[in-house]
Nucleic acid binder design. Structure first.
Lengths: 224, 224
DNA sequence: ATGCTTTTGTCGGCTAAAAGACCAATTCAG
DNA sequence: CTGAATTGGTCTTTTAGCCGACAAAAGCAT
């Protein structure tokens, strides 16, 4: 019964403080899966109303708007929650694409989770705070988009990724880059061409270097 | 003990299903206040970490950005929650201004509420869903701002307000208008001048009429 | 290798809407 | 009632950055 699933859940800050009988219970309602690069996780059908949490790898959340445009909504990394976070069933037009070579995630039905937190009110509060945190994050991202120009947005996007990476010896932070310029454009709400030329001006300014698989950002540029 | 505070809380969908002993408890942690037009509610100092809910009137949430610009973030009406919704203490740079002649609101400390929902897990779930709803709302508003042009944004802003108002006999929905063009501009993320001239083109197109105190929107324009 | 597809690079034209400037109309305070 | 302050109206100028077009480079499959 002490399955390997345990340690992961326990590692997640949302569940960190639960004892093993709690874990037992949540494991009962949880399901695990490992998928490969390019695989798609739909939030419809059997996944409706599920909350996912990413154990390994990274993925991007994509939404199709009315005109059929692919909009990259978010890039997620280990520990992030996604899916029906709000415990509301919906998100018909959203799905996730795996960016890393493999990705492992866990999921449980929001409805089950609801039942679970009814007995564990402290988890409920934690969960609410977690959602609140995401709320803030979203708010920030959007206010950025509205009030900053594209160049600033691109920079804060890069800085944001850089936060999770060690700075190299040579004064650069190396960011693995699974994203095309098109993806980046979509994330910072701009166009492919603009991103390309901005990356080149930034290169010219000595702020960064980049190839297809990585972006090296000058650590000095992380200030301000 | 059956104070007048009761009926208000009971009227709020979040607390509707609570019995009177629950209400007793939440009233214990709640505080009430009535304020006048133009009054400001700061979220700092003694209000830090408070959740507010509006009983009567309307108000606007304003934020001051780094450059000192006033940004109108939201317009709230009866029943809306505001303040430290996420149960996280913050929002230093935000405050609310009363728009209607008077406004009455209730507030409780997030920390107290936390304790309260620990005994009332069903409220916790409801609350989480409520937050989720706001999350969606925010998401929608911003995706509007990003992908629609100003005119469309203005129209959906008006339609959004119109939802809460009865259509008049003459085929118009009358919207009381406490907002200056500057405010509207700020809400839909545009400029005063653009809003003014757009309102006038819309008037020319016969979609609406407006004066300083009301905007009359043609009901036919509510479709699509 | 060889071709096919996807991604990147660059350029100029184009447009929505911001920004500035000024005046008219309202509102408000004393 | 009167003058100041706020709000609304309409110009004109300016600009960020979108868009289309096309070429070069890199990735990928056979």
């Amino acid at each position: 019964m002490y399955s390997s699933q345990y340690w992961y859940l326990q590692n997640h800050s949302l569940f960190k403080h639960l004892n093993s009988s709690d874990l037992n219970e949540i494991c009962y309602i949880a399901a695990y899966k490992t998928v490969r690069k390019g695989d798609i996780i739909f939030f419809s059908e059997e996944n409706i109303g599920r909350v996912f949490t990413l154990k390994k790898g990274s993925l991007k959340i994509v939404r199709i708007d009315e005109q059929g445009n692919e909009i990259v909504k978010d890039i997620l990394k280990v520990g992030d929650l996604f899916g029906s976070l709000d415990l509301i069933e919906s998100n018909e037009d959203e799905y996730a694409i795996v960016l890393s070579d493999t990705a492992t995630f866990c999921s449980f039905k929001a409805a089950d989770f609801e039942k679970f937190i009814e007995n564990k009110p402290d988890v409920a509060v934690k969960y609410t705070k977690w959602i609140g945190f995401w709320f803030k994050r979203l708010e920030n991202r959007y206010s950025n988009i509205m009030f900053k120009d594209v160049k600033t947005r691109l920079m804060s996007f890069l800085k944001d990724i850089a936060k999770d990476h060690e700075t190299d010896t040579d004064g650069y932070v190396s960011l693995p880059n699974y994203l095309t310029h098109q993806d980046i454009a979509s994330l910072i709400c701009s166009t492919r061409q603009t991103v390309t030329s901005l990356l080149n001006t930034l290169k010219a300014e000595g702020v960064l270097t980049y190839s297809r698989k990585e972006i090296k950002l000058k650590t000095a540029a992380l200030e301000s």
